[in-house]
Amino acid sequence: MFREITIGQYYPAESRLHRLDPRVKLFGTLIYLISIFIANDIWGFLFLTVMLGVVIGLSKVPFSYMVKGLKGIVTLLIIAGVFNLFMTPGQTLAQLGPLTISDVGLKNAVLMTARMIFLIIGTSIMTLTTTPNQLTDGLEISLAPLTLINVPVHEIALMMSIALRFIPILVEETDKIMKAQMARGADFESGGIVKKAKAMVPLLVPLFVSAFRRASDLALAMEARCYHGGEGRTKMKPLRYEEYDKRAYVWIVLYLLVLIVIRVVF
């Protein structure tokens, strides 16, 4: 039941987007997130849709993969849409008993839903085309300035990559513990939410104990291999900008400029 967890899911393929330096992709995603909120009319979103289409085409990741990410938030989208639709004051367009739909409300609801969908699809393109390790490497370098204000960037990046390595191991272990307990008559399937949650407690205790033991073993093994923090460390796979990375930066900036122009002109 836990095997479906897919954090930082990566879709292996040979594409321009896959080859791109993770720092470029992080920057691009950031600009994209900002751009979603700059676009506020039909022309802006038309442009966004076209650009997103181009990027999806470049990524060579099947579109159905990205839509998967949307399934989880359908309820959230509907609730947010409905609230925006009925709760925003403005000129009344239609009236259904106590509920009124205003012009502002309609616009907000549509914008809001569109923004959420664009947000999920856009960010999932990044995680689908970047391996978790590249992502943490990219984050480590991009966030490096934060070390000036004492944010332990290297440590956070290392923690992320270790966490990603141990997810499958802990998932397997959870499965084992569950099966061992089911063999002795534990019931994880029946009953309401409260009963199911209670059945999880005897599962979590041994899982936590083993996770702590693993953590302490790992810390010892890291120390034994001369780990002493990020200081004086070299990289086996350092990030280097190629020609197409630089071109990608230009495209990203151009994209933002066009969107701003659209907003100002129309």
Binding site: P132, N133, S161, I162, L164, R165, D217, L218, A221, M222, R225, C226, Y227, H228, R233, T234, K235, M236, K237
Partner: peptide, 17 residues
């Protein structure tokens, strides 16, 4: 005692340090 999620990266961990 294996730190990285790719074999070669794990072997490189010591020399990196």
């Amino acid at each position: 005692q294996i730190i990285a999620s790719i074999v070669e990266e794990d072997v490189g961990f010591g020399p990196e340090n």
